[in-house]
Structure formats: structure tokens, C-alpha cells
Design a protein around this nucleic acid. Sequence first.
DNA 1: CCGTATCCATTCCGATACTG
DNA 2: CAGTATCGGAATGGATACGG
Lengths: 149, 149
Amino acid sequence: MAKRTRHEKAGCPVARPLDVIGDCWSMLIVRDAFDGLRRFGEFQKSLGLAKNVLAARLHSLVDYGVLEIVPASDGSAYHEYVLTEKGRALFPVLVALRQWGERFCFKPNERYAQLVDRKRGKPLRRLEVRAQDGHVLEPADTMVIGRPT
Amino acid sequence: MAKRTRHEKAGCPVARPLDVIGDCWSMLIVRDAFDGLRRFGEFQKSLGLAKNVLAARLHSLVDYGVLEIVPASDGSAYHEYVLTEKGRALFPVLVALRQWGERFCFKPNERYAQLVDRKRGKPLRRLEVRAQDGHVLEPADTMVIGRPT
DNA sequence: CCGTATCCATTCCGATACTG
DNA sequence: CAGTATCGGAATGGATACGG
């Protein structure tokens, strides 16, 4: 009893990912991995969290197939953590979260780290939810069907 | 000591939202709110979590401005929880998470609840990250600048 | 430099009882 | 129905010591 609920068996594709990245640190590790961080120490320095916690999260992400362990690129004895295809596919989630944070979690004058188009140095276009024919959809234009019992 | 780290002061717009929706339940409450659930009992029935936990999460979401409390629409003595503009702006986050879950958290034959275009009943287009000029961007085509120290 | 192991405070969460 | 109050177990997470 009193065990933490897992969503692995939920029939909802929103719920299951929360087991994987639904905590304080996992998304930030993924963010750093997108920024090119690979080494244990790099993550720790960037995030400032305890080493045991970092180790646990890294292993969890490896277990879930978001990260994989590869030999060190510089020939050192250690290994590095890089995003798998599954991990790289989190890019839109990260961008969505970031754009929401920019709009609603900062004061007007406050500075924040900005994700830009590398070629032009310009910020990205706002993400839009679209139907197959390309129409932009508002929440009210959508519905959920086929929810498993 | 040993307090849970909050990201309110982080200069990264990915980090701050995690204080708001970076736990198991908040995103699911938001999902249900998008599905039109409004009453305490509806959320509880849908999510199957303890009432005290639900109450805490609802209040937290109200405090963060994601939900607001409005008088009951049916004239009953209680109130209801509805998304604010800030909450509705989480729609792309929810869709991004959902699309990732569909691809990577279900087996090929497994059924899941599907979000569709209400008019046509068809699934949505995959979210794409684009530059201002409309070009689709891969993670490698982007970079982070202006990270506050 | 890269982790693992241990310890402990805090927080989370589920169950249940209770009030209006 | 809509919550609040309380309890206890579990998980989280921080600090630090230690081994490769």
C-alpha cells in the first residue's frame, strides 16, 4: 500500500510518458543532452544536484531508452550519455515546455536563455497544433476518442 | 536541508514550468480539464487518486494560475475548476507529450485514447519545430544563447 | 574524474475517518 | 458531493564518505 502510482498500464498516451520524464530532473537532463552535454560531471555541474540522484536518473533514462551509454569520445576510460532516437524525439516536448515557460514563467523584463535557429540566430516560431489538412486547431476543436476501459 | 529543489529562480524557461507541472498528477489534471472535466469528483473518479492529494494539486494549480475556481454551472453550492488562459496555453505541451507517448510508450497493437480533429475525426498532424521563416528545424539546427549566469 | 553506498530530512501519496 | 484532517509508508533528494 501507499506505493507511488505508475502509469505504465494507463491507456492514455499522456500518462505513460510521465513515468519516464515526469519528475524534476529528467527533463533537465534531456535538455542538457540536447545542448551537447555527455559526461557525468558535466551534467552534475550544470544541474547542481547530488551525484547519487544524478546517477539514478541517468540509469532510469537509459532503462527507458531515452539515453544510451557510449564509450568516451576522448579515449578516456569512462563512458558518455547520449540521446537515442527516442530521446531526440522529445525535442518538440522540450520546445513546447520552453515556449510556455517563456510566456508565463518570466516577468516582462526578465532575461532567459533562448533557443534560436542556429543559422540565423533568431528565435523559433511558436508551435502550433494542426489538423492533417494543416488547419490550426484550438483545444475546443479537438476531442478524445477510443479511450480504453 | 534536503529540501526539494525548486527551479523558480533558474534562468531557463524549461526549468521553471517543472515546478508547476513537473509531477505525476498535475499534467493529468490539466489533460482532464481539457477534456471538459470541472468538478472535484469528476477528477477524482477519472484519476483514482486520494482526495487530499487531489485537493493539494488543484490548489497548487490554482495558485500557479493554471486553473481558476468558478461558481458551479448547475447552480449547486460547490464550485468548479476551469483552465485559465495560462492553462489553455499548455495545449501544445500536452499534444507534444501525447504524440511522443503514442510513438514510444505503446506496443504496435496496443490501443490508446486518441486525440482527433473534432470536425473530421482524424488524428492530428505531428508537431514540428520551425524557424521563423517556416523551415522545419532538427535539434542540431538550434542552439541556446544568452544563458544568464 | 566517475561513480557507488550510506544516512537522514523532507516530501509525496494512499487510505481512511470525519464535517458540512 | 465536496472537501479537510490525520496517519503511516514509500520515495525523493541532499550531503558526504568512499572505492575505481
